[in-house]
């Protein structure tokens, strides 16, 4: 999984690309989050607009990210959840666990 990280209005935006299926790069996001938390950056949006699909490993990565951020008194929100990922969140009953926004701007604004 490749991802880019940027910062907008004090919110860290993580943008993964391609398919999130696990493998050797599965722990990279978690390491990055730990790094951000250590810098006291705890307002995070994961922008899923460039993610083709994810499997259960991908869902595990999202849950792990959410739990890690919440345990450190931060917030993690999702933006641009594609139809395919929304279906996966629905069948696994994770839809209500994540706060979701249909644009990156709305997700960022929600932190105010």
């Amino acid at each position: 999984m490749e991802f880019t990280i940027s910062e907008k209005k004090g919110v860290v935006v993580i943008s993964p690309q391609g398919k999130i299926m696990g493998g050797p790069d599965a722990t990279e996001l978690h390491d990055k989050l730990r790094n951000l938390i250590s810098q006291n950056k705890k307002r995070i949006v994961i922008d899923l607009s460039k993610v083709d699909w994810m499997n259960s490993t991908g869902l595990g990565i999202l849950i792990s990210a959410l739990t890690t951020i919440r345990n450190n008194q931060g917030e993690l929100k999702l933006a641009n959840v594609t139809e395919k990922i929304e279906k996966l969140l629905e069948i696994t009953r994770l839809l209500t666990v994540f706060e979701r926004f249909d644009s990156l701007e709305k997700a960022i604004e929600s932190f105010k």
């Binding site: 499997n55 259960s56 869902l59 595990g60 849950i63 792990s64 739990t67 996966l88 069948i91 696994t92 009953r93 994770l94 666990v97």
Partner: peptide, 16 residues
């Protein structure tokens, strides 16, 4: 998809 399992990091593969 039941109880505490919903928030587990693993265990969804066969279900999916």
């Amino acid at each position: 998809v039941e109880g505490e399992n919903i928030l587990k990091k693993v265990g969804r593969g066969v279900f999916i």
